[in-house]
């Protein structure tokens, strides 16, 4: 299923949980693991000076420094690399999202793995609930699925055997479904749970719905799931479908926890067309930040492909 995995890493504790998942997946699928470390942003344009993201120091970027950083990465991941048969380390300079996307364009991986935010404001409310800019921008523009691990709880599954597909019936969601199905079908015994969370928050509905109206909408959504997704599950038996009402991200996280899912697949469905300033949809972002398993984002570019 995965033969080439790109792991964007800061080689710091912020990326430890994502590293656990990246190394485990690479081992399980016998994939090449491409560790990409963007060591800093040049102080201006083509400056040879950059601020190292790990040390915070202004450093002169040359081949010696890059080689030293590569050695540091090898030391940091020494234990994992011992068991990893096929890997390469790429150290580059620039804005992390651009360099990760550039490397992805060049190497065409099956999957990009990213960790949680690395902002310095450790413990702040902002960090707890807002995905970092690299996550946002790579998820928006990558041409392959992006797997995100933002909490320690999401890093202990050791493989995939129970996938939750969060359906929102958009075009990107169709691509996410195809991907979720492909993953589930490629792993013997893997379960696929198709789940739709119906938003009944007053902000979105504008008025409070009666219980009859809610149940009608749930029936409607179940019908949609049957026609749109279940009809395309030819021969796949280990699936279930559920529609719950509530606050979508809360319900998705709860559902995945209830099913003890080890992967959530969702569509990146933001309508923002400005790639540099785009933010993940709020539901996707909150699921990433709160989920007890890794979350894979599939964007509209994949839907076009």
């Amino acid at each position: 299923m995965f033969k080439d995995i790109l792991f964007g890493t800061s080689a710091s504790p912020a990326g430890d949980y994502a590293a656990r998942v990246a190394f485990e997946l690479a081992g399980r699928f016998d994939a090449h693991l491409r560790l990409v470390h963007v060591l800093g942003v040049p102080s201006r344009g083509f400056s040879y000076l950059a601020e190292d993201v790990r040390t915070g120091e202004q450093v002169v970027i040359d081949d010696d420094y890059k080689a030293w950083v590569e050695e540091e990465i090898k030391t940091y991941y020494a234990k994992q690399l011992e068991k990893c048969n096929d890997y390469s380390i790429h150290v580059c300079v620039g804005h992390p999202h651009r360099e990760i996307l550039r490397e992805a364009r060049n190497s065409n991986p099956d999957l990009i793995v990213l960790g949680g935010p690395t902002e310095e404001n450790e413990g702040s409310a902002y960090k707890k609930i807002v995905a970092g800019s690299t996550i946002q921008l790579v998820s928006k523009s990558a041409l392959c699925p992006v797997l995100l691990v933002s909490r320690p709880a999401a890093s202990f599954w050791g493989g995939i055997s129970s996938v939750v597909f969060g359906a929102d019936f958009s075009k990107a969601s169709d691509a996410a479904f195809k991907f979720a199905k492909k993953v589930a079908a490629s792993i013997p015994g893997c379960e696929l749970h198709i789940f739709h969370a119906m938003d009944i928050g007053p902000v979105h509905t504008g008025l409070s719905l009666s219980q009859e109206e809610i149940e009608d909408k749930i029936r409607e959504a179940r019908k949609k799931i049957r026609h749109k997704y279940v009809a395309n599950l030819e021969g796949f038996e280990k699936y279930s479908m559920e529609v719950w009402e509530g606050l979508p991200y809360v319900e998705i996280v709860k559902f995945a926890r209830e099913k003890q899912a080890d992967l959530i697949v969702m569509a990146y469905s933001t309508k923002d067309v400005d790639a540099e300033n785009a933010r993940l949809g709020s539901n996707m972002e909150q699921v990433i930040m709160r989920s007890t398993c890794p979350v894979i984002s599939v964007n509209r570019k994949m839907a076009k492909n």
Partner: peptide, 17 residues
Amino acid sequence: DLEMPTEWGPRFYRKLS
């Protein structure tokens, strides 16, 4: 234990539960 060869601990818990 959590990290074990082939299957990790949470999978045991899933089967158990």
